[in-house]
Design a protein around this nucleic acid. Structure first.
Length: 625
DNA sequence: CGGCATACG
DNA sequence: CGTAT
DNA sequence: GCCG
């Protein structure tokens, strides 16, 4: 609440001008090992340099190395003008060799095409220094330009003689550059910042955007998310070392750059959960899926993910295979097994999970369609309407033994199996929200409470911005506790009786503010909720209405907003902090202790909860992990 | 080698 | 064991 | 399957 989202930096001027009069070229190499400069790291370096009064530019090393840049003069002039070139240690001394190799390849190409590629010049300006990224970090640390000498790298140490004129020229210039720095020039520059150069111009978002434009495969949403988020990224470390342990510490937008990987991982999660029935494997793949959804650029080699929590050897092997072939043999092998296919099909029925599906499978059922057909046949054999039910009953009794007979809810699930799979657009979800709102307002008005006391929020995938939703999760409460008591029940009545809405109630929670006792926890009022099928625009839609007491509002919204992995990781994270998080409250002490106390204090909004947990707030749309 | 999120019907 | 996130 |  006290937090002001993201713009305190414009008013204050918290940045030094330690990079004043420096023009830095950063060679981004796309790598991820400790000595590489990943696009994200390059972006951070650039941002920091600009924030501290310098100018900087990121050049994808590939462009230099592969000679992809046509505008050779432009590149050259940039290199000559720069005061510093930031180069990863892993590329030290290798640049000319790579350039040379690529030049030869290009020339081979060009002989066929008839075009001639000139060798790329790698001349750096007279007083330009080639340094490792640590130099930037340390300048920031000390708030001044530090002596670059300990950080100097060579572009060409390895192959000085071999290359053409351009390389030796570069080498000479670099040495020329190194010499005077030891003397006067450097001193002048090093003493520079504090003295002159007053105003620090913080670069606009658009400016940063423009500078980062070359990274076409770095999804803009993700990039924005990371820059806006800031988070635990540490400039002096490579990105993989800063990648947070928990999903709740990393922004994950719906449109992420690794959609060449995630669909297959989604299938693996489903297959292990419902098909194979191995929930440990399911969680393992689910965690990697969450990593991929938060990884800010396109993964090109599985080793980029080395060292990331939950991504071990076999996970990287799966990723590598998908990257190489676009397929996952492991998944395909599982899909070949017809029993897995049948189980997945049977699990489409509401109230049927892996265990029930397996029972039905063992009873001889191979698909939902088969059950539907059998039910229909049983219905037809009976004559009158009354008999029909009896036939179905008899049929069910004869084919399913008592323990595995479908419940009423499962029967509904079998009948509505296709309807269940139809997704809603955001408009349609909003329409359902409108219906609940109307009913809620009527209910409150009947108690003499105005619209301003209504708390209403549709959560779930809708709140996270999903375009298509399987259901609508509408949370309803009232700022006045007496307005909330029994509200959900009243909403149901109004929808059915006053508004004439066709509602099939699948499940109803304890009504009228009953108290749920957990053995390990303090008693607190439980949510009043219902799961229904609501007829809307000709379809039965799944509608969840949840009504928590007002003091639980923030926790409830957080708990119903997802994603599932976010919720899991929020709880894991809370545990690590010695806290316990639920949809009702936060608790001190671990869950094992018999008498944990509810935290004192008021949590009005989701932000309050994130802040209390010591987490940087992630808006719902960045919780798509 | 145990644990893997949590609560509720 | 099922549902919800 | 991975982590502590």
């Amino acid at each position: 609440m006290k937090r002001k989202a993201a713009s305190p930096r414009k008013t204050a001027a918290p940045f030094s001008s330690c990079f004043a009069d420096t023009e830095v070229l950063i060679l981004e190499d796309g790598g991820i090992s400790p000595h590489d400069i990943s696009p994200m790291r390059a972006g951070l370096l650039l941002k920091k340099i600009e924030q501290h009064g310098g100018t900087a530019e990121v050049i994808p090393a590939n462009e230099v190395l592969e000679g992809r840049l046509r505008a050779r003069e432009q590149r050259d002039s940039k290199l000559s003008r720069a005061t510093h070139v930031v180069l990863s240690k892993s590329l030290e001394g290798k640049v000319p060799a790579l350039v040379e190799r690529l030049r030869r390849e290009k020339n081979k190409d060009t002989n066929e095409n008839g075009t001639i590629y000139a060798p790329l010049p790698l001349t750096v300006g007279r007083s330009c220094q080639v340094v490792s990224p640590d130099w930037v970090s340390d300048c920031l640390l000390h708030r001044q330009l530090v002596d670059p000498r300990p950080y100097l790298l060579s572009l060409d140490r390895a192959e000085r003689n071999e290359g053409g004129d351009a390389y030796t020229e570069a080498a000479t210039k670099r040495e020329e550059a190194a010499e005077p720095t030891a003397g006067g020039t450097k001193k002048a520059r090093l003493s520079h910042p504090s003295a002159s150069t007053p105003t620090v111009v913080s670069p606009t978002h658009a400016a940063i955007e423009a500078r980062l434009a070359p990274f076409s495969d770095l999804d803009p949403t993700t990039r924005d998310a990371f820059f806006a988020y800031g988070g635990p990224l540490v400039l002096s470390k490579p990105f993989s070392a800063s990648f947070p342990k928990f999903a709740c510490q990393r922004p994950a937008p719906a449109q992420h750059p690794n959609r060449h990987l995630t669909p297959l991982f989604e299938d693996l999660v489903e297959m292990y959960g419902l098909g194979v029935g191995d929930k440990e494997r399911e969680t393992a793949f689910g965690r990697v899926l969450a990593v991929l959804r938060a990884w800010p650029w396109k993964v090109r080699e599985s080793k980029e993910l080395k060292g990331i929590r939950h991504v071990g050897g076999s996970m990287r092997a799966v990723i590598e295979e998908i990257l190489m072939t676009g397929r996952c043999s492991r998944l395909e092998k599982l899909r070949e097994d017809s029993s897995h296919r049948c189980l997945l099909d049977l699990c489409r029925v509401h109230q049927v999970g892996h265990a029930t599906a397996r029972k039905w499978y063992e009873a001889g059922y191979r698909s939902v369609a088969q059950i539907q057909a059998d039910l229909k046949r049983a219905e037809e054999t009976g004559d009158g309407e009354e008999q029909a039910g009896g036939e179905v009953e008899r049929y069910l009794g004869s084919t399913f033994c008592t323990s595995q007979r479908p419940s009423m809810e499962q029967l509904l699930g079998i009948l509505f199996v296709d309807e269940y799979s139809v997704k809603m657009t955001r408009c349609q979800v909003a329409a359902l929200e409108g219906i609940v709102r109307e009913a809620a307002l009527k209910a409150l008005a009947a108690r003499g409470l105005g619209a301003e006391t209504l708390l209403l929020q549709t959560c779930g995938g809708y709140l996270r911005g999903k375009a298509l939703n399987g259901d609508a999760d509408v949370l309803v409460s009232c700022t006045q506790a007496q307005g909330q008591a029994g509200l959900r029940e009243e909403i149901k009545r109004i929808m059915q009786e006053d508004m004439g809405i066709d509602l099939l109630i699948l499940k109803e929670g304890n009504t009228m503010g009953g108290f749920a006792s957990k053995p390990t926890h303090e008693k607190i009022a439980s949510h009043d909720n219902m799961l229904t099928l609501i007829k809307h625009e000709g379809f039965y839609r799944r509608l969840d209405v949840i009504s928590p007491p007002p003091d639980q509002w923030a926790f409830c919204v957080l708990g119903w907003s997802g994603s599932k992995q976010m919720e899991k990781d929020l709880r894991d994270y809370a545990d690590e902090q010695g806290l316990h998080l639920s949809q009702q409250a936060v608790f001190r002490e671990t869950k094992r202790l018999t008498n944990p106390k509810s935290i004192d204090g008021v949590f009005h909004s989701e932000e309050d909860v994130w802040e209390f947990l010591g987490l940087k707030y992630l808006p719902p749309r960045l919780r798509c992990a």
